[in-house]
Design a protein around this nucleic acid. Structure first.
Lengths: 359, 359
DNA sequence: CTGAAAGCGCTTACAG
DNA sequence: CTGAAAGCGCTTACAG
């Protein structure tokens, strides 16, 4: 690995000059610049990034934090949905285009303070933190530092932090309206963990849509559990066991909707003939399951790219960096898992297994 | 952020001594050590990792490379299957336990040489490279460096590189045998990209199992495409359109099996009544789809942890570091997507849509 | 057992 | 426009 001194010697200049040329300093004669560049290219010189980041007190690395519902901060956070993996991919691509590396910091810290400390010791230029839950203490710890940060799905802000999220309220509103149009009045919702921003916003959209339609919300039809297939499956089984009266179910992720569908099928209920099911995210899988899933699409490209754009502006120290939260519109995608309310139900009651007037 | 000098001043020693204490040098008096540690803890001192890695010429960072079939090296590689994401998680966890950070190097390089160069400039301690295809030029480029490397699903070795993979031949053998036992003789395989190690090994297992059973392989039933749901769906549609004669299909991933199932369902074929379907990986989803999928389980924990163990040994420079490839056993998981050969078929022919003696 | 010194490979005021 | 010098925060022979 050649160093700046090697290049300096070969080009007949000082290594200071080499450094100036390669970091694009303006006060350099064209000839010198050309000569140095030629030599650098020839010997394959590239500045040592570790040395650079030591003297600049700042690296070109962005820390990627993933805070699941249960605080342990790892890739496990993306497990609940391929959706987060998609967002990650767009972040990665955008980071690469800007020349930033992504760092997954090791999680051997004992507390939130240790987390930010470890980021500082690594001279990270900024951080992107995806959070399924909003209670992770590291969120507050990050806000107290001066590291530029963009949160995804946490409404955290400061002079050097902002966030990106989908317009979940509208998204939920859209899908509920769609179901109302189909005649559904008794709609269950599996909104996800209660401490999740996305889950809570979707619950809000649900409430509003029902209220607007003059439909009374049945608290028995609202479940707030984990964002997983397993939890959704269990919630659905419980709903069925409790003989709750509903004709449609909205889940906070597509994978959850698959868990729901599984529970329904096991009881001999058909989708959408007996029960309509809708998800959230619009992952590829939606098209391949039976029936194809109606869902609320989240624009992961916009989220990932938007997060990077906000972050880059802050890292550059732009005085006029846009710190307003970025709210990405959602889109209702109607497929075959939602349909009209079962005909044998007028204004009557329970799911088609067995029923006897309003409970 | 306090530095070693701050601690030195407060503890009344030189910063050399501080450094010695905190890197666990042996020749330090117990009293000095205790005093320095006390001060360090009090002021919250931790060594600056950038400075350390500059002087040590080695960081505590492991580069994570993901080479998809089509060379572009990003998280896109894990898209084909949640399986790779699982492996990644285990790698991440193991790395954290050992105190290593994971780096996703930015992909702004123009060629393979640039890739290894960028890793060197970052002083990475080692690399773990997951590859769906074996033709990526970066694989060879890495072998020519002295960076300790563990490959996943590429059989690449050198004095400082080894690899981890599942025992794909046996895995494929197991599932084919299972199908043979059920009476199937005409078994299609969607083995994945032809340049993939895993795909090729599984194809080999398929050939061997058929040969052992005295069943002639029909080349028309072998498809080698991408490891995606989409490709598997298209392959299945083609197989159907070409009116190929088969009663079972084995796919090289569970997601591919889902694509296969979709195509079958669209033609009104039932699984497993009309056609048996089996996958590979055993992702969570297998339990939630209809019918639950028979598959060959890959042990991602063993793969991820094994990769890290091999890597750590090399990074430490253990003279007796185990460089033998790590081959992880697979396990056949029988669920409901495979069943006996359709009864109406004796030693007869084509799928149940319409048939007329051997083609 | 401990301190002073050199050095890792850069960047950047400071002179000129 | 360019060079010499200082310094980023550590580690590690070299003396003692």
């Amino acid at each position: 690995m050649p160093t700046s001194k090697d290049v300096a010697r070969l080009a007949g200049v000082s290594h200071s000059t080499v450094s100036r040329v390669l970091s694009g300093s303006s006060l350099i004669s064209p000839e010198t610049s050309a000569r140095v560049r030629a030599v650098a290219a020839e010997v394959g010189y590239q500045p040592n990034l570790v040395a650079r980041s030591l003297v600049r007190q700042r690296s070109h690395t962005i820390a990627l934090g993933l805070f699941p519902e249960e605080a342990d901060g790892s890739l496990a956070a993306v497990q609940p949905s391929p959706f987060y993996l998609d967002v990650l991919q767009h972040i990665e691509r955008a980071a690469a285009e800007q020349g930033y590396d992504l760092l997954l910091p090791s999680r051997t810290y004992k507390g939130p303070h240790d987390f930010v400390h470890s980021l500082k010791m690594r001279h990270v230029a900024g951080a992107i933190l995806l959070a399924l839950g909003t209670t992770d203490p590291r969120i507050q710890a990050m806000l107290r530092t001066d590291i530029p940060t963009v949160f995804v799905d946490v409404a955290a802000q400061s002079s050097h932090a902002t966030y990106v999220r989908s317009d979940n309220v509208t998204g939920a509103h859209q899908v509920i309206e769609h179901l109302l149009h189909l005649g559904h009045r008794r709609i269950a919702i599996l909104s996800g963990h209660a401490t999740s921003l996305a889950g809570t916003e979707r619950l809000l959209g649900y409430q509003r849509a029902l209220a607007q339609a003059g439909v009374t919300l049945d608290p028995g039809l609202v479940r707030q559990s984990s964002f997983t297939m397993e939890a959704a499956y269990r919630d659905m089984v419980a709903l069925l066991d409790e003989r709750r009266d509903f004709t449609a179910v909205v889940a906070s992720s597509d994978l959850m909707a698959i868990g729901v569908t599984r529970a329904l099928h096991e009881r001999g209920l058909r989708v959408p003939t007996d029960v309509s099911v809708a998800g959230f995210d619009d992952i590829d899988l939606c098209l391949y399951i039976d029936p194809p899933l109606t869902t609320v699409r989240q624009d992961r490209a916009a989220m990932g790219q938007g997060a990077m754009r906000r972050l880059v502006a802050m890292m550059r120290g732009d005085a006029d960096a846009d710190l307003t939260p970025l709210i990405i519109p959602t889109q209702l995608v109607i497929r075959q898992s939602t349909g009209p309310i079962p005909v044998e139900r007028g204004e009557r009651t329970a799911p088609p297994r067995m029923e006897a007037g309003r409970p």
